[in-house]
């Protein structure tokens, strides 16, 4: 017993000085937290780029990570509604409950697109507050990064100066990168595309590309062959140049349509880790643009 106590006492100061534990719901926020927190944070990403953020199991390992989190960084807008509430409920962590400084929702700091005008499950898995896939527009990353940097300073005042410096440095690098991407993306303007799920609405809006059709008949509803055929027929009237899907989505519907319409299908990384080159946020947009530009006329 004495030995155990001694061990506990030895362990206590260690945990007090340890880096801030950040629980990121999605890889993009994990990457952003790493950029802004540097060595002062220890980041855990709940999901990988190969997993569908809508459909995650509230696994025991996630509850264990949530238990130790000092800051939870999630998308919000009901993207994680099927699993995050369970983690928050079962982890017994008071500091990261919604409303506490330890709970950060990225969608609160940007304006959401595609807000449904009516809420009815007959319209599929609609998100009442709008499309939650905000990180595909780098301008949103910029906005969220400012808010997240401020939050890090708020909950970790001991490293405030370092957080501030990293925030400023990231902002500068990100703005420079955005100017580069925007110049390079010039040829993509007006490019007509078909998307599998509304994962890229913000990206396409940023690049001023045109969405001709969505392969899901309703959000979150898998397309049937009949529906795909109707999309193919629509494309004969108004041809698209590309079919886009996220790396985690099934290749079948996109490939089927691409073959039928004789246009390429692209698996964009969608988030950090979605491809080899997308190892951080900069790589994510580099790779996304390169892939798009490769097939653009």
């Amino acid at each position: 017993m004495k030995r155990l106590l001694a061990l506990l006492i030895l362990l206590l100061p260690l945990s007090a000085h340890a880096a801030l534990n950040v629980f990121a719901c999605e890889p993009e926020w994990a990457a952003l937290a790493r950029e802004l927190g540097g060595n002062d944070v220890k980041v855990y990403s709940a999901i990988t780029a190969m997993q569908d953020p809508h459909r995650i199991e509230a696994r025991p390992s996630l509850i264990a990570q949530m238990r130790r989190a000092d800051l939870v960084v999630c998308t919000g807008a009901e993207l994680e509604i099927g699993w995050l509430p369970i983690l928050l409920r079962d982890a017994g962590n008071a500091g990261v409950q919604p409303g506490q400084p330890g709970y950060f929702e990225a969608t609160r700091f940007v304006t959401l697109m595609e807000k449904p005008t009516r809420l009815d499950r007959a319209d599929g898995d609609v998100h009442a507050s709008g499309n939650p896939h905000i990180h595909t527009d780098p301008r949103n990353i910029q906005r969220v990064s400012e808010a997240l940097a401020a939050r890090l300073i708020e909950i970790d005042p001991a490293h405030a100066a370092a957080h501030r410096a990293r925030g400023v440095s990231f902002s500068a690098r990100w703005n420079a990168a955005m100017t580069g991407w925007q110049t390079r993306a010039e040829p993509l303007k007006g490019l007509p595309v078909v998307v599998q799920h509304k994962s890229f609405s913000y990206l396409l809006n940023w690049l001023e590309m045109r969405t001709l059709a969505t392969l899901e008949p309703k959000p979150g509803v898998e397309p049937s062959v009949g529906y795909l055929a109707s999309v193919a027929a629509q494309l004969q009237e108004t041809p698209a140049k590309l079919v886009l899907r996220a790396a985690y989505q099934s290749p079948r519907p996109a490939d089927w349509l691409a073959q039928r319409a004789g246009i390429p299908a692209l698996a964009l990384p969608y988030t950090v880790g979605g491809s080899k080159r997308a190892s951080d946020l900069f790589g994510l947009f580099d790779d996304t643009l390169d892939q798009l530009l490769k097939v653009a006329p």
């Binding site: 945990s15 025991p60 390992s61 509850i63 264990a64 079962d90 982890a91």
Partner: peptide, 12 residues
């Protein structure tokens, strides 16, 4: 009364 341990391995 429920307690979750602050460990990587989930212990409840």
């Amino acid at each position: 009364l429920k307690w979750v341990a602050p460990t990587d391995l989930f212990l409840e």
